[in-house]
Design a protein around this nucleic acid. Structure first.
Lengths: 225, 225
DNA sequence: TCTCCCGGTTAATGCCGGGTTAACGGTTTA
DNA sequence: TAAACCGTTAACCCGGCATTAACCGGGAGA
């Protein structure tokens, strides 16, 4: 789900855009002038801003510049009816990230919104359990500085296990988060789990994956005897 | 301080413009016809050219075209009394960077001059990674002083890789930045990548291009063992 | 004690996608 | 007009990966 701020004074257009975006699982706040936009930007965290250039009170370029001055680095898509080079230049100079000329296709807008949101959300987050670090942006897993190899699916599995750790995660829940609705034959999970366990042991990571019926899988420190 | 060439046959207007620009810390040379303009362009380096279209001897469009033919990529602002779309199109086709219709406000001109000068100074930089230098203005790449050959597309690819380095850049993102919306068959990227890698290795550049699924391409120093 | 269930283990299969190479067509240059 | 360059495409190779199937072994219940 993407949270977006739409700044557009044409209420008809704004309504249409918001309706369409909603179908794509993008929820929008709306401002119809520059001052309101800045207020919303200051009070909320959006993943993307769609900003018309022609606005009452404070035009889009100024809104963009002010927002950047205030340290707000939310990705901004500029919107304008003027298909002129100068607008683009000025827009980018003010710190816009992308540009769309009216009239535009809704699909086009959605595509760009998603692209920017994705780029943004992929920024350096990482999970750590018992010294093992999982880097969401680089898709890498490392322990004691040495990287350990993980296939994409293995990575997703490990991510879920680490998010839940030290609590167990239900088997079906796990499968759904990794594979989504369409899950393959259950054998696949077994095999991936096996590979994960093997990877952990060969890397001497002091963690083990346990399974308990009616409870699920859990990632926990190895128990010495 | 911005150094500018004003090409304008109306001496009154030219004088006014130059006086005004001076207040903004912009110093101007002046040519009153196309031939003189080309001569000055060949002998000096300006940050911006303001070029009237209606000129004696050689009109502005021709001056623009000739200058570009000679490899001069100084930003040009076209100036004309004719507010016609055709002029704009033709102007941009000849390589103009911006456009201003007479009569214009001095503030408008100053704004655009500054915008172009800034863009120019910003884009004239060169990128350097691990001793390899990519010159944006000259479109050349060199390592240890020796130039290494790069096709236009290869150059764009390398530029994006270097901008992102050492971080990876998403495959789709890369394709869009190099080819734009309409990208060719994905094979093309592979081939260009291959040529780039080959160029790097034959030039003994200690950099390598890596790819990782779900992450993208990255330019990083070679790992010795 | 036998058997069914279910997770773990291992090996095999097929696919997907990047890497590599060669060839074709268009454009520019000598 | 021939040569060189460049972008693109097609064809193939190859490795990694997900998936499947087959088998093993322990625990629960009859």
């Amino acid at each position: 789900m993407i949270k977006l701020l739409l700044v557009e004074d044409d209420l008809d257009l704004a309504g249409n855009v918001m309706d369409y975006l909603e179908l794509e699982d993008i929820v929008s706040d709306h401002a119809s002038n520059g001052v309101a936009a800045l207020q919303l930007l200051a009070d909320n965290r959006y993943q993307v801003v769609v900003l018309d250039i022609n606005l009452p009170r404070l035009d889009g370029l100024q809104v963009c510049a002010r927002a950047r001055e205030q340290g707000n680095d939310t990705p901004i898509i500029m919107l304008t009816a003027r298909d002129q080079l100068q607008d683009k230049i000025t827009g980018f100079e003010q710190g816009a990230d992308d540009y769309l000329v009216k009239p535009f296709a809704m699909e086009e807008l959605v595509m760009r919104v998603k692209a920017l949101a994705k780029r943004r959300s992929a920024q350096n987050k990482q999970l750590a359990v018992a010294g093992m670090v999982l880097d969401l942006s680089g898709k890498t897993v490392s322990f004691n500085g040495t990287e350990l190899h993980c296939s994409p699916t293995g990575f997703k599995l490990l991510e879920q296990l680490m998010r839940a750790s030290p609590n167990p995660i239900d088997r079906d829940e796990l499968v759904e988060r990794v594979w989504g609705e369409e899950s393959p034959d259950s054998n696949s999970l077994k095999v991936h789990m096996h590979k994960l366990r093997k990877a952990l042991s060969t890397a001497s990571v002091p963690l083990e994956i346990n399974f308990k019926t009616q409870v699920g899988f859990s990632l926990s420190p190895v128990q010495e005897l």
